[in-house]
Design a protein around this nucleic acid. Structure first.
Lengths: 342, 342
DNA sequence: TTCAGCCTTTCATACGTATGCAAAACAGGT
DNA sequence: ACCTGTTTTGCATACGTATGAAAGGCTGAA
């Protein structure tokens, strides 16, 4: 790294100006005469000089780095988030330093410490929780945090989520309108706000129609755990005729078990719905009814929140809830069956 | 970021020692007496001090940042790579700064310039190419580059790939042994070495058995483009009875078209094989025969190559080719059909 | 107790850059 | 030509930290 390092002093010497002029040339909003600017541009080009972002950060207090914590990329939803968030921040002159945490968030505090070592300008937590002690620490350091697709009871943390509760309620209402009377739910990771809110909405929707939740299992947001959950749920003689699976990723697993292990037909025997609308939900093999999370808008709101906090300092935390959209596909019945046709 | 910033000078004051002692306490391999160490530890803990990685990089010439360029995360293969590479580097005390490029690599040079601004200790290019001008630039800066799952003719660039050519040949041999006589190939992005090598191996394997490639289309590594490619390939009365699709991601698209649009049975009417063995290849909905890329070993070799280059400087570029493994699943025939049963 | 060798500590400086301030230069009007 | 106001420039310093060199302290052997 130390070889052939070109500094602003080298450029200044070649251009016959001061280092200060070179710095001003590369700093927006400062004044440099046309003549001086041309000398500097030519010298910088000849030497291949570009300012050192890290050295700048010492002076400006701005590293142009955003720390991003993701728990797992196995679920198609999060690669999409990483990709779009990186691009959107890249367009704003920031770059994403990626940290991988566990699903249960037990190492997020340690990771956040490491993130702070890099003097990041902000942190995005995608599907992970942070201790309030660390939240206070970030707050004291002036580092804004945005929870992506996760909620937490801490007024210092901004959050951008879909309306998970409304989405769960929508699916309950859908099942009811399709004539389903035995509805099951497969939960994600119990510590996640998305899991809690989606279930809450689903239960509320069923209760409004006078129906209980007839079966519940836990899939921990993992394909294999969701397979096992489906096996448990459909092991007895009485099983649900409709299942809301907390996210698409697990819904694929449930569908695979129903079809290929239990010989059940979707949606003839069981309707299945998920949440997210990740790419495979659109693939004919799954053709999954789901609630679409508007990733583009979520990313845009996250970036806007971060940029605002970074520029204005402090500010109250923002809680942004975006509407999801019900997407009907072939995994749920097309219409309610009449009693006769059963 | 400027609020409440605790520096090594604050710790030194509180502990009653010099800033230099504080620095040495946090620098492995330096000497500090037990007494002084305890004073510093207590002061640092009380003030919540941790060294500033970026300030350190000015002195040490080491940022502990690795730039990672990925072209798209749509293909399940790359999220897995990002996750594992980030973890492996995290374990070595490095962190990954992510940059998203386009599939055709036309903006990789600009991105690499931006990466260098961050004084990265190394760069990993996952499924992307770099101009030789930029390669020279990185070489001059002493920044090691490792191509992941991509090859390029530049002796300054290290690379870690699977043996794509052997994998292609294995699939040709498999098709031949299963009695297939009309074999098709759906290519990825034409500018990618993986696409070229897999096709070359496939063609060689067919030629060794005296068979021509009977159909070829291009899918550009994208689901939708692969769907279109499958439609074109199977539009006429004569179509292949076996298809090698350049990667799993596109193979899913081809399978979906064959089954749900053309009413063809897999593998009864057409055998389909992919390359990568990404998670959905194992899901019962696809159950795809494929060549497994050993991601764990590829990541380990990439990290080892980077660490070696960073520690030893210069060194010759390393080209590491790992064997893939043929994984037989239900998308290819179980055995050759005899002429009678046809 | 003294001496030599090794360990520990502090001082001064450097890393690459931005910025406040004072001085110099420039531009337009009288 | 002189004056005033504005722009531009360079000097000096700071950001947070690591490190070479010199000085001081410690330890064990004679």
């Amino acid at each position: 790294m130390a070889n052939d390092k070109v500094t602003s002093n080298d450029v200044a010497r070649l251009a016959g100006v001061s280092q200060s002029a070179v710095s001003r040339y590369f700093t927006p909003g400062t004044s440099v005469s046309k003549k001086t600017a041309e000398k500097i541009r030519a010298a910088a080009e000849e030497l291949g000089y570009r300012p050192n972002v890290l050295a700048r950060s010492l002076i400006t207090g701005r590293s142009r780095i955003i720390g991003l914590v993701v728990a797992y990329l196995e679920n198609y939803f999060y690669p999409e988030v990483v990709e779009r968030l990186s691009k959107a921040l890249q367009d704003q002159g920031y770059h994403v330093l990626v940290f991988i945490s566990s699903i249960a968030s037990e190492n997020v505090d340690q990771i956040t410490q490491e993130i702070l070592d890099y003097q990041v300008d902000g942190i995005v937590l995608a599907s992970a929780n942070m201790s309030s002690e660390l939240a206070a620490r970030c707050h004291a350091s002036g580092v804004p945090i945005v929870l992506f697709n996760r909620l937490q009871d801490d007024e210092r943390l901004s959050a951008v989520t879909s309306d998970n509760r409304a989405g769960g309620r929508q699916l309950a209402e859908l099942f009811v309108s399709l004539g389903h009377r035995r509805c099951g739910y497969i939960a994600g990771f119990e510590g996640a706000s998305t899991q809690r809110d989606r279930e809450r909405g689903f239960r509320e929707g069923l209760e409004a129609a006078g129906l209980p939740l007839s079966a519940r299992e836990v899939g921990n947001f993992r394909y294999e755990d969701a397979q096992a959950a489906a096996r448990r749920m459909f092991a007895g003689p009485e099983h649900p005729d409709a299942v809301f699976v907390c996210n698409d990723h697990m819904a694929f697993a449930v569908m695979d078990v129903l079809r290929f292990e239990l010989g059940l037909r979707i949606p003839d025997d069981v309707s299945v719905a998920g949440f997210d609308d990740v790419p495979p939900a659109r693939w004919p093999a799954y053709n999954l009814t789901t609630i679409r999370q508007n990733v583009d808008d979520m990313v845009a709101e996250t970036v806007a929140t971060l940029m605002h906090s970074i520029k204005e300092g402090e500010g109250a935390a923002r809680r942004i809830t975006l509407d999801g959209a019900l997407v009907l596909r072939g995994s749920t019945r097309a219409k309610a069956l009449t009693e006769e046709t059963r």
